[in-house]
Nucleic acid binder design. Structure first.
Lengths: 166, 166
DNA sequence: TATTGTTATACTCTATAACTATA
DNA sequence: TATAGTTATAGAGTATAACAATA
């Protein structure tokens, strides 16, 4: 492959002159979350509730634990979230006939409507930010983020899930 | 997983078919932080201590409060961090001769060495991830991240700093 | 015995308020 | 009185452990 990485490589002396990727991504994520917080508030949703609504419709989730892990939360953490969403008629928790330990989660029509409304509003705000970028960079950014999100190194879940006993 | 990328605009009916920007950036940031955690541990640095070392050398910081705000932390939160860094001889806290309330912060030679070593190791790990991207996308990603980080909408600090009386 | 969901408890992180010393 | 730094306290968020129901 090429040797044209001279200007931004770290092999010249061990003193990198680029900002860390994490040092840009983490604050950006914090800012994006802060920016969408008012929108979520306006829709009566917490961040985790929104994450649940988003993930529920995309792939049919069977167990609550799987849902929790999918959105990067703890098994015990989303229970209060699910309780609230169910009480508001946004989701349904049905016992699985085949395995009554399992509660099958599904989105109600109202839940889907709220999800779409919130996501539309959020992405409208994001579009305003992305509009500052050149079209090529914007497309490459979304493509690169998607690619990085799928990397096995980064999708590795937290260790110690069921492995460390006591 | 659907890959229906026919329309990436939100004007057609209010139902976006793109993942939220935050939904990609935030987990990515979490994963990047998790990935660099072992490196920081190996260097005996916490995330905030590393952030302090990174930011100290870049721009001469006068007050601790300014440093805290620059790295997105609270004024009271970095004090223990500074105590530890100072005790280990990585930074120096000198009273400002002109205003003895102010402690001037500076990096020692050893602090700079440790900072460079940690950053080099961290960016080596990040380079492995970025290597998965096409060169053009990689460059555009870094450029776009840098651009977005500079946006006024996203760099706006938290409100209510000193405004509420009592 | 193992697993799903749940509850209760403890721990970590973070922010708010109160204190000192300088100005 | 106001500000920089510090300390102490309280709150939010999170994870770990124990429990009931089902397999």
């Amino acid at each position: 492959m090429g040797e044209n990485t001279a200007d931004r490589d770290t092999t010249s002396g061990g003193r990198p002159d680029r900002p860390d990727l994490a040092a840009m991504v983490v604050p950006l994520g914090r800012a994006l979350m802060a920016a969408e917080q008012p929108v979520l508030d306006a829709h009566g949703l917490t961040m985790w509730a929104y994450a649940v609504l988003l993930h529920l419709d995309e792939t049919p989730i069977r167990t609550q634990a799987a849902l929790a892990e999918a959105i990067g939360a703890d098994k015990t953490r989303i229970i209060a979230v699910l309780d609230d969403l169910e009480a508001r008629g946004l989701i349904v928790r049905q016992p699985d006939p085949g395995d009554r330990r399992v509660r099958l989660l599904s989105l109600t029509a109202e839940g889907r409507r709220l999800r779409d409304a919130a996501q539309t509003a959020i992405q409208e705000g994001e579009e305003r930010l992305l509009a500052r970028l050149p079209a090529a960079d914007r497309a490459a950014l979304l493509r690169a983020l998607h690619t990085l999100s799928e990397l096995p190194e980064l999708t590795t879940r937290k260790p110690g899930r069921g492995s460390s006993r006591s």
